[in-house]
């Protein structure tokens, strides 16, 4: 049984190129000149350190665990929790992170943990078979923080914070396989793609000049947050027949009100989880200069469906498509 697998990390778009060492040597020589040489009495200290580094490789034993009939899953990744729900596996959940708790279909009464600093003892006491951990938790420590769990024979999977529809498909397949239901994963991806195809067929009939300029706000307050290309939400706006006003930027971005005013969006979407989010945007001083605000095209998008990279984003896609092209999409859904 594979105990630890890291999905996507190696086939993501990061390439690592190390420049040749000699390029640094000149710099090192210059910057070290004038500093004291290592005093003789520190030499034994350095020797101990070298021994320490060699010693650090020691690793403790592995154990086998008893096999149970029912699967016990702890999910410390909201995206994984959302995918588990779509795979109808929520009844196997015994523990979740705090961001997973309000998601649709998550049962009450589960143990709830902090995502970045989970109470590891309590996770261990739940004796899960599978633990899904957000890669954010690992990145805050930079190692394999759940090694004590995988050493006890629990399957620990780090789930990346995915940023594209393709990566979401991979996450679904990966989680389905990890839980022993690969065929459910395939059919879930199939359903996602079917809806995507249906919507893009309709959108294809809409002429290019009818595609509206969209500003999608994901964070309000002292700073405004939106996104450029390379984010699944940008793919959704595009697939729904809109044009993200920040498509020229890349990734999750902080934006300035002036940039929004200059780009004059025709539609404003917000998934800020607050009932008054759309009204708050309309009430911002100076924003009535925007076409979208003047014509009251400011809409709230389901936060639960759109905020996690999971198949639920397809629900958000349908929502966006209906808002952008009410004439084509009204009454079209099942």
């Amino acid at each position: 049984m594979s105990i630890l697998r890291i999905p996507h990390v190696f086939n993501s778009h990061i390439s690592l190129v190390l420049p040749p060492l000699h390029r640094y040597s000149g710099f090192m020589n210059r910057s070290c000149r004038g500093f004291p040489a290592i005093p003789v009495r520190l030499i034994p200290v350095l020797a101990v350190l070298a021994a320490a580094v060699l010693m650090a490789g020691c690793s403790p034993r592995k154990e086998s665990r008893t096999v149970r009939d029912t699967l016990r899953i702890v999910s410390l990744s909201p995206a994984a929790t959302s995918i588990l729900h779509d795979l109808s596996l929520t009844e196997s959940l015994v523990g979740i992170d705090r961001w997973s708790a309000p998601l649709q279909g998550v049962p009450d009464g589960l143990a709830v943990f902090d995502m970045i600093n989970p109470d590891a003892e309590r996770v261990m006491a739940l004796e899960p078979d599978i633990i899904f951990v957000s890669s954010m938790t690992r990145d805050a420590t930079g190692r394999d923080p759940f090694k004590p769990f995988s050493e006890r024979g629990m399957a620990v999977h780090y789930i990346p914070v995915s940023d594209s529809l393709d990566a979401i498909r991979r996450d679904v397949r990966f989680i389905a396989e990890a839980c022993g239901v690969p065929e459910s994963g395939e059919s879930l991806v199939g359903a996602m793609d079917a809806t995507l195809r249906r919507i893009s067929r309709i959108v294809a009939t809409i002429p290019e000049d009818k595609r509206k300029r969209v500003y999608f706000e994901i964070g309000a307050g002292s700073k405004l947050y939106s996104f450029g290309s390379g984010v699944y939400l940008d793919e959704l706006v595009c697939a729904a027949g809109g044009k993200n006003i920040f498509a020229g930027e890349y990734g999750w971005i902080a934006v300035h009100a002036e940039q929004i005013l200059a780009r004059d969006p025709e539609i404003i979407l917000t998934n800020v989880p607050d009932a008054g989010a759309a009204a708050e945007i309309v009430s911002r001083p100076g924003w009535d200069a925007l076409k979208a605000v003047r014509e009251r095209h400011v809409y709230a998008i389901d936060h639960g469906a759109s905020s996690q990279p999971a198949p639920s984003v397809i629900r958000a896609l349908e929502e966006i498509a209906r808002i952008l092209h009410p004439d084509v999409f009204t009454g079209e859904e099942k």
């Binding site: 101990v48 350190l49 190692r143 923080p145």
Partner: peptide
């Protein structure tokens, strides 16, 4: 200090 494992202990103790 949570979830650091023994590696930092093995490294930092002699250091």
């Amino acid at each position: 200090f949570a979830l650091r494992g023994m590696t930092p202990v093995y490294l930092l103790l002699p250091l």
